[in-house]
Structure formats: C-alpha cells, structure tokens
Design a binder for these strands. Structure first.
Lengths: 140, 140
DNA sequence: GTATTTGTATCTATATTGGTTACAAACAGC
DNA sequence: GCTGTTTGTAACCAATATAGATACAAATAC
C-alpha cells in the first residue's frame, strides 16, 4: 500500500527501489520483491537499467486495494490446522468443510471493503495538510 | 471452532483435553492452551481432577463466532510493518494513520460476518448426515 | 489417600518473514 | 559498442511465531 501510494504520488515519474525503501524504511530488495508481485498482477511496470524504476501501470483511480491485496498476499490469512482432523470422529470428518465455508465468507467480506477503495484514495488520505494548505483560509 | 463444536455436541457432558485432542488430531496441551483462552473469555468452564474436563459456559446458541475469534486470536491479523516508516517523507509520515483506519474497517467487516454465526450453527453444519438420518425417508 | 485432570512452564522443531549480500540481465547515455 | 546504473532473483541469516512435547504442581472425585 505504501509503495503504491508513493508511485501514485510521483505521478508517472519512475521511482527507484532504493528511494521507495527509504520512505518505507526497509531494504531495497524487500521493495523489489513487492514490486515484482505487483508487476505480475499488472499493477506496476518496472524498467531495468540507468534511469530505470517503477511506476503505476494503470491510473491510481482504477487500482482497487482488493487487487493490491490479492497481488501481494499469496496465501490465505486464515487457514486450517496443519494436521487433518480425526476422520473417525463425526465432528472431525465434517468440520473442515464447514470452516472452509466460513473462511470464504470472511474472505468475501474483506474483499468487499477493499474493493471499494483505490490507490488514489490512499493518496488523498495521506494529503490532509496539503488539502488544508490548498484552501486559502479556514472560514470561521 | 473445532473444540467448541465438540463441547456443544457433547451437550453439558464435560470432555477431557485428551479426547478433544484426539478429534482435532493434536497434542492435549495445545487444546488446553486454547481452552484456557476460551475460559478467560467466559466461553467455557473447566474443572481439574478426576471426572474433570471442560464444557460450554453458556448455551451454544448464544456464543457468537466473533467472541470465539476475539478470545483466541490475541493480535491483529493484519498489522503494520515492523519498522516505522520514514517520518521525513510526506507519505511516510501519514501512511500509518491511513492504514490503521483501513485495517479497522477490514476488522469490522470480519467481525460482522462472525457476529452473525454461533457455535450452535457450527454444530448444525457438521450434522448433515445425522439430519438426513433423522428424517424417516427422503421424500421423492 | 489415591488416581486423575487441568493449568502452566519449559524446551524443541518448523515455518514464515524481513533483512542482507551477490550477481546476471537489461537498459540509457555517450 | 562501452560504461554505469537498476531491476530481478537466488542464497543465506536472523528474528519471530506456532505447534508439539515433557514435566509437574494444584485441584478434585471417589
């Protein structure tokens, strides 16, 4: 989210992973790993070489946070126990299916929230001071 | 969820951690750790000693999965990056608050789904065969 | 009093994540 | 083309979280 906000903020100008890492306060390779996932999902484009860097592949208003989430988060957050339950037990033999259904519903709810928001919304949200400064004066 | 379904299924009869562990297919201590959290949240009661065990503290129809989730899951699933972002950067200095707000919304959505469901609902859901067997015959 | 079970401490194994170094491939500019 | 820069990715280490296991005191039923 932080990376995409920076890219949207920069508005088409390609940013280097080192610059992004400085804002996020981490290592450039960590950023490049994330950019790689975002690139595979078609959200950003990157270019190697001098004057290289990354920028949004699509307008920030058209990138939903749901897409970002799915691009970056490879596995389910909620997941089953590592061992299969005891299939001899009437509860154990059916609980997996029940919980899978529940997790699907939870997942859909998360998607619902994230689908309503965009990277452009993040940029607006991190700009409270600039928005305030843009107005000439607070009326009353 | 699995443990509470078993306790509700047993209907007031106290179950031992070893029995529960057998159905979940794990170690009794793992189960006891979970029972301990559920007990602190007032969802189950346990008794030491011979003929001891655990049972629901309240009717299964009145225990929502939201309560279960909050009782067992100590930390936020989605969380911030381990390092604070760069406070010199206009994006870095504001992104934390923005993301906290987003995570609150996601959390609320998850709560919304889980609050609608109860342990009794889980018991019903794992009983498809018994429900079918309860009816004398499938009509047509 | 004895046997049993919980509650909890402690330890180990394993998985995940973040961070780091290293380097080939790609690219811009001269 | 040559050079310098940046990405993409592999490999490795450290830190953290979780599951699983052993052990044992406290509590309880019989």
């Amino acid at each position: 989210m932080h990376v995409l906000t920076l890219l949207a903020w920069a508005d088409e100008e390609p940013l280097k992973s080192e610059y992004l890492a400085c804002s996020v306060n981490t290592n450039p390779v960590v950023i490049r790993r994330i950019l790689c996932a975002l690139s595979r999902a078609g959200l950003v484009t990157s270019q190697t070489g001098a004057a290289g860097g990354s920028r949004l592949a699509r307008p920030a208003t058209e990138i939903t946070l749901r897409e970002v989430y799915r691009a970056v988060e490879p596995r389910e957050i909620f997941s089953m126990h590592r061992q299969r339950p005891n299939q001899e037990c009437p509860v154990g033999m059916n609980i997996e299916g029940v919980l899978e259904g529940l997790l699907s519903e939870v997942d859909a709810a998360v998607d619902g929230v994230l689908a309503e928001k965009t990277v452009a919304g993040l940029v607006e949200a991190v700009r409270p001071r600039r928005a305030a400064k843009a107005r000439p004066r607070q009326r009353a």
